[in-house]
Computed example of a mutant assay.
Amino acid sequence: MTNDTKLLRIYTDEAAYFGDRKVFEVVASRARDAKLSGATVLEALLGFGPSAHVHRRHVLESDRAVVVEIIDLEAPLRAFVASLGDIPGIGLMTLEAVEIVGGSRKGVSAA
């Protein structure tokens, strides 16, 4: 029996926009439209990436690092990642195996 459940993490920041919407909002909306199991948007207190630019909350603006987490089966997650190619402002995306040990499994097969 194989476990095909994965965790997709999409890194961006609060200041990244796609048109007039924040990138993390567009990603979460598209995940809902793709009927993925669900999405959680997490705001980091502090973060930096390869550029070494430190993302944090400033007095007049927010530039914190943001992570969108989605748990679903591998095939729909890979298709979803492919659909995000038109959105600038998305940084690193990772896909890793997860084991669901409790809670609701609605929409996700525990295989």
Rank of each mutant, 00 (worst) to 15 (best):
I90V: 10
R21Y: 04
L46I: 14
T94W: 05
G89H: 05
L92H: 06
E99V: 13
R105Y: 04
V98Y: 14
G102W: 10
G89T: 09
G19K: 11
D13T: 14
G91A: 00
A110F: 00
S29D: 15
A16W: 00
R21E: 12
A15N: 13
R64E: 01
A79Q: 13
A15G: 07
R57F: 01
A97E: 15
V59A: 10
V68N: 05
G103M: 09
D63W: 01
I70T: 09
H58Y: 06
L42Y: 11
D4V: 14
L45K: 12
L84N: 13
S109D: 14
E43M: 03
R105V: 12
R64F: 01
I90P: 06
A111V: 15
E96Q: 14
I87C: 05
L7S: 08
V26H: 09
D63E: 06
A110C: 06
L84Y: 07
T12Y: 05
D20R: 13
R30I: 02
A16G: 02
L8T: 07
S83Q: 12
L7C: 12
L8E: 03
V68F: 01
E25S: 13
V27C: 08
R78K: 15
Y17D: 03
T94L: 12
A97I: 04
D86G: 15
L7F: 00
G47I: 08
G91C: 03
L60Q: 09
I10K: 05
T94C: 07
R9S: 10
L77D: 02
